[in-house]
Amino acid sequence: MDFKDYKGVWVFIEEKDGEIPSVSLELLGAGRKLADKRGTELAGILIGHHVKQLASPIFEYGADKVYLYDQPIFENYRTESFMKALLECSNKYKPEIILFGATSTGKDLASAVATDLPTGLTADTTELDVEEETGLLLASRPAFGGNIMATILCKKYRPQMATVRAKVMKALEREPGRSGELIEETIDLKESDIRTKVLEIVRETTKKVRIDEADIIVAGGKGLGSAEGFQLVRHLADTLGAAVGASRDVVEAGWIEHPHQVGQTGVTVTPKIYIAIGISGAIQHIVGMKNSGIIIAINKDPEAPIFDACHYGIVGDAFEIVPILMQQFKAALNREEVSHVREV
């Protein structure tokens, strides 16, 4: 294997309902940095059916090239069909690095492709860097329950691959009108070559909790004592118009369902305001919310590690502080509204 043949950074672009999910845009941002450091190109690889129009946002978010497979067989994501396209493309153009979102699709595809190439694949990366000279990808990730970080290298194989967690990388500002080279590929693949069929896609009709999209999150921890105590968090969230988050211990206690769990084994969130109430601030929780805009912590233990991770901290009893906060907040907002009305 001659490493010199391998050039460029690729990002596998996901597509859903005709749009590019933010994780792919974040990867373009991260990939741009790697490509610049290496002095190579950044490419998006886009596979689907009727997805060609997505090439331009890929350029606008930083890519120099887009490799496109746009065929009916790619209507739905299936490991086998997508894998064959990606393998063919990779063998043909030989990228140095391929990044995938650590989503169910991204992980599924990356594991299959890495086995066939074969090459090393680092899962759930949260930090990325590249050695300028050698092009060696430095992919770092939490290991052993988040207790430590490990940097993982793939020295002897190319391309180097990693799946990257959503919400930890930053997308670039969109640059309208920015464009690049579109390379359209086709693959000779018959439906009968593929052994799986998507019979139906069911979108859950009940309003899904998507705390990762909320601007404000009020999160509660075991310190609230009981399921009843946890109501305090829900009330404050109602008052502030916020989503409700929780620590894992709370979810395990059954006070709220898993989609609300913030952290390593839950959701990573980046709201503008994150209020942590009665949460001790274990590392596994912190990794899931540390990139929030403003972090506010309320905890009665002055030594709680959450205070190391917050912007504003209040040492006190949640059951005393929060009711005052709700009352004052309502009063303040009413004042605003009244003055607003008067101005009109």
Binding site: T122, I148, M149, A150, T151, A309, Y312, G313, I314
Partner: peptide, 18 residues
């Protein structure tokens, strides 16, 4: 193909205003 080159503890956050 992959090797672990370095292991470290995640840096402790700085802490904010009380």
């Amino acid at each position: 193909p992959t090797i672990v080159s370095k292991v470290w503890a995640p840096p402790k956050p700085q802490g904010g205003e009380m």
